[in-house]
Simulated assay, not measured.
Amino acid sequence: MDLRTLGCVLLLPLQLLYHTLRAGVRLLLPGRRRDLSGDVVLITGGGRGIGRHLAKEFSQSGAKKLILWGRTEKCLKEACEEINHMGTECHYFVCDVANREEVYKQAKVVREKVGDVTILVNNAAVVHGKSLMDSEDDALLKSQHVNTMGQFWTTKAFLPRMLELQKGHMVCVNSILSLSPIPGAIDYCTSKASSLAFMESLTLGLLDCPGVGCTTVLPFHTNTEMFQGMRVRFPKLFPPLRPEVVAQRTVDAVRTNTAFVYLPWSMHALVFLKSILPQSALAEIHRFSGTYTCMNTFKGRT
Rank of each mutant, 00 (worst) to 15 (best):
L206R: 01
V127Y: 02
S135A: 15
V212L: 02
R26K: 14
V126C: 07
N122H: 09
T216G: 13
K56L: 11
V121R: 00
R231C: 14
P219K: 00
R26V: 00
A125M: 03
V246C: 09
W153V: 08
D134V: 08
C294G: 02
V114K: 08
N123Q: 01
L206W: 09
C172E: 03
L11A: 12
T118K: 04
Q151V: 00
L29K: 11
L165R: 13
N122A: 06
E225S: 13
R111W: 12
V41H: 04
R100T: 06
G150I: 11
L68Y: 06
H91P: 00
S191E: 06
M199D: 01
A139Q: 14
Y262N: 15
I50A: 04
T155K: 06
G290W: 12
V171Q: 04
G47K: 02
L163H: 07
L27F: 05
M295Y: 09
F227N: 11
A157H: 13
A253W: 02
M162H: 09
R242Y: 10
V271T: 14
C172K: 01
C90T: 04
V254W: 05
V25K: 11
G62R: 05
Q166Y: 05
K65Q: 10
E200Q: 08
F234V: 10
L282S: 05
A157K: 07
L14C: 08
V261F: 13
G7I: 04
T222E: 03
L42H: 11
E102M: 12
F198G: 03
L132I: 15
S289W: 14
E102H: 12
E200I: 04
K167A: 03
L277V: 04
D2F: 03
E284V: 14
E57R: 12
M295Q: 05
D137T: 13
K108V: 01
F238E: 12
E57Y: 08
V117K: 02
K105A: 04
R301K: 14
K156T: 03
P239D: 09
E200Y: 04
L237A: 15
M162C: 05
I67M: 03
S131M: 15
V94Y: 08
L263S: 14
V97C: 08
P30H: 04
D35H: 07
Y262A: 12
A197W: 01
C172W: 04
L10C: 08
S195H: 01
I119Y: 08
H169R: 02
Q279D: 12
R32T: 13
G51N: 02
N257I: 02
L132M: 14
C90A: 15
M149V: 12
T250G: 10
A185Q: 13
K64H: 08
I182P: 00
L10V: 07
F158D: 02
E164T: 12
K64T: 02
A124T: 05
I83H: 00
Q279C: 11
L11P: 01
R249G: 03
F198V: 06
L159M: 06
V127N: 09
A125W: 07
Y262F: 15
A55Y: 11
R22I: 05
P243C: 11
G87P: 01
C90P: 00
V217C: 06
